[in-house]
Simulated assay, not measured.
Amino acid sequence: MLDFLRRTLAFLREKQILQKLGVVLSITVICFALYILYQMLSDIDLDELLKALRGTEVKTVLLAGLCVAAGYFTLTFYDFFALRAIGKTEIPYRVAAFAGFTSYSIGHNVGASVFTGGAVRYRIYSSWDMTAIDVAKVCFLAGLTFWLGNVAVLGIGIVYHPEAASSIDQLPIWLNRVLAIVLLAGLVGYVAWVSSRPRHVGRGSWTVVLPGGPLTLVQIMIGIIDLSFCALAMYMLMPNEPHVGFVVVAVIFVTATLLGFASHSPGGLGVFDAAMLYGLTHFDSQFNKEELLAGMLLFRVLYYITPFMISVMLLLLREVILGALARRRPSGPHRHDDISAPGPS
């Protein structure tokens, strides 16, 4: 059976069928989300939207901004953890933080984050003698941390509040709870699997040693903390009435984020917004659309636009410094000629 699956996957990769199916799926998700978004926003009152934006307290925006900053701070440990997992212990946290922050904030906004984020990481880590294969391993382990955190948050959240998931997927509450239990059982099974003995994925130089049980639990906690801070920022920017619990918002937020990620649209634009509006208004029809949209626009500014602008400026500054150092050294820059390089000992 395993040999059959391997041959099938090899055939699909050879014919690029999986890639084509992925493109079709992305386009389908985006088109469907834009249709839903159009239907939901067709009766939006622009004056009411502007009033809701102006009515948001500065203190609320600042607190949400702090949560976003905390989320991005936690996100830097995705790369730091991955570097330690592949044995790159000589690379300090500040380099991992710089690479993690810039790659994720640019990848989130540009779309196709696997490629755009990987390109940013390679540009930074290549200064530390890391190869393209090393960077690919970091991307894989960082992505694994992201998915483990998502599974944990969705599993726990849906078990506690299955009606939150039902507001998006329209499945029966009992079925969503069962699916969440299956998710958590799979997560527990994965932890047990990597705990039993060293596990490897990939072949040859592309082989990655998966973190063992205790380190996998660390991965899960990093992902949970990151997603919780981001969901908390969204929760703070929501209307005060009607009141819904944080867990409900977290489940809908993570689901919307994953749908946006699956669409590969820049910043999940259209897909994330449609899922959030659809989920929250179906969970409680008393939500004011203008107030919801105002909170989502502020969240997009805080979580997407502001980090993107900061990242672009930091990368430009880095390139200017590297260029200046290269001109001072005719033989070419040293591998640690970097704004994040270690200083003199």
Rank of each mutant, 00 (worst) to 15 (best):
A69T: 11
I133S: 04
V209W: 08
G212L: 05
A142S: 11
R197H: 15
T74Q: 01
D129L: 12
L232M: 14
F77R: 00
G267C: 04
H282Y: 11
T131A: 07
S265R: 00
L277Y: 07
A250H: 02
G245Q: 01
A82S: 04
R7T: 07
E291Q: 10
L21I: 13
F11W: 14
F146Q: 03
S196W: 15
V188T: 13
S196Q: 14
P344L: 10
L83M: 05
W193D: 08
P162T: 00
L83G: 03
L50R: 15
F80K: 02
L2G: 15
K59G: 15
L314Q: 06
L292F: 09
L171V: 11
A119R: 15
V312N: 05
A119C: 10
F101I: 02
S196C: 10
G111D: 05
I168E: 00
L298G: 08
L217D: 04
A274P: 06
I158T: 07
V29D: 00
F32E: 01
R328F: 05
F4A: 09
R318L: 09
D134P: 10
F308L: 08
Y38H: 13
L187E: 00
H161G: 03
L210F: 02
Y160I: 15
G157I: 09
Q39P: 09
W174G: 10
L2A: 12
Q39V: 11
A10E: 15
P333I: 09
G223W: 02
I339N: 07
L63K: 13
E57F: 10
I225M: 00
Y72T: 00
G323W: 06
E290W: 04
F115H: 11
F229H: 09
S340V: 06
S103D: 06
L41W: 09
T60G: 06
L154I: 12
T76L: 05
R335Q: 13
A70R: 07
T60V: 14
G117L: 06
D284R: 12
F272E: 03
M234K: 08
H282N: 14
I224H: 06
L12A: 05
L297C: 07
F253N: 02
S285R: 15
D273S: 08
P162A: 00
L217F: 13
Y104W: 12
